[in-house]
Design a protein around this nucleic acid. Structure first.
Lengths: 226, 226
DNA sequence: TATAAAACTTACTCTTGGTTAGTTTTTTGT
DNA sequence: ACAAAAAACTAACCAAGAGTAAGTTTTATA
């Protein structure tokens, strides 16, 4: 048991180090030596645990996607209505612990690996599918199936778009700006009378308050950053 | 005069070759040797005309963005109403000569250079700004200023989102699918009664017909691909 | 046509990803 | 408890990559 544990601990350490390297230097300037230096080991150790750079990058990519999905799961625990669950998905995708310039830049770097790395491709597809199905599940409460599908795809693509922009622009994109942009989309795509507008507003506020506690906690941040 | 011309010709040849290399191998696997081989010259020539790899990549990035903006300009020439100009922007961004798996993958590769390359960053910002202002100019005919601004940003981000998805997914995204997705957004964001719906439909059809001739022509394709 | 400048070539340096062969530590079957 | 096996780690290497430097050829110009 311990043997397997050591390996998985090392792999976790190394993918964290690699992520840090990508954040600092960008994918093209990330070398195995730098990753090793950040992790406090030699390049040899890196290649012992990941047979090649691609495998390491896949692990980094998987890790960063897992973090995102864990945020959603975490917020889901407190969301009690379709409104709240919808906002949980959105807020989780843009909460500043995860959604910040450094991480968005790293993400932009990492996705360039996807087209030429089957493992990354699988992760990416699974991730898209997961978020689409999460959204669908909630949108079905507001829209007929066909319409809900279109809106779900639209919201998913738009989330990606905001992430890309945040990674490419020199000025940081604030959580509040991103979430408000999503609110604008929702106000146009979902039935939006006075009553539902109020429900959305309440749901957003409640979830944001919870996010500040759950995702802003030191425990969660440590999991993400450390 | 000729001296300057030779230099610019070589630079154009080399950035085309580099683009081709990025399409084939991805940014991380693109080497100066490969670029040289594709251009039919030695690595030394590449480095003579671009002092370093970053400078070459900046040229590639600039080139691919120029192509896009030239498509818009080309279609603009035939667009006579705000409806048609709006659709010209959208169709130009997704016409298959430019919007295809290979090119989208290359684009996804290239943007990873942006955060760590000032030149690319400037190009990217200018590009965002250009498309935003193009959109704004037309949207002002349909919406009050403030609303138009939100919608312009939204459409711009969404275009990026579709491009990223097209670069990341293994299955190609058809022009028609992408444009229809934009149509869906427009139908939700702009005033959309029976009359305007018909006008949008006509505008889209007219512009698509023109695009097939203007952007599908051998002359234009040669400019893009050759 | 002499001279300067630009285009190109070649040979080299140093870094990087990856291999191999060997050493130490940990796990496990008895 | 302990020998054998497996896993973790190290160090010395190699081939390919980016970039340099110094030289040669071609082109432009006064």
């Amino acid at each position: 048991m311990r043997s397997k544990s050591i390996r998985s601990i090392r792999r976790a350490e190394l993918s964290r180090a690699a992520f840090e390297a990508v954040v600092q230097f960008g994918l093209r300037r990330t070398t195995l030596d730098k990753v090793g230096a950040i992790a406090g080991v030699s390049k040899g150790v890196v290649l012992h645990h990941f047979k090649e750079k691609s495998a390491l990058l896949e692990a980094v990519f998987r890790r960063s996607n897992t973090l995102l999905s864990e945020s959603v799961v975490e917020l889901y625990r407190y969301a009690e209505t379709p409104y709240e669950r919808l906002w949980a998905i959105i807020v989780a995708n843009f909460f500043e612990t995860i959604f910040n310039r450094r991480v968005c830049q790293a993400w932009v770097s990492l996705i360039s690996e996807v087209p030429h790395n089957e493992g990354c491709q699988r992760v990416q597809i699974a991730n898209n599918e997961r978020i689409r199905s999460n959204l669908m599940h909630e949108l079905k409460h507001f829209l007929p199936e066909g319409e809900a599908e279109k809106v779900a795809r639209h919201l998913g693509v738009h989330i990606d778009g905001i992430w890309v922009r945040a990674g490419l622009l020199p000025a940081p994109v604030e959580t509040d700006v991103a979430v408000s942009e999503m609110e604008f989309v929702i106000s146009k795509m979902l039935p939006f009378d006075e009553i539902s507008a109020a429900k959305h507003k309440n749901a957003r506020q409640k979830i944001e308050k919870i996010a500040n506690i759950a995702l802003g906690s030191k425990a969660f941040k440590d999991k993400v950053m450390q």
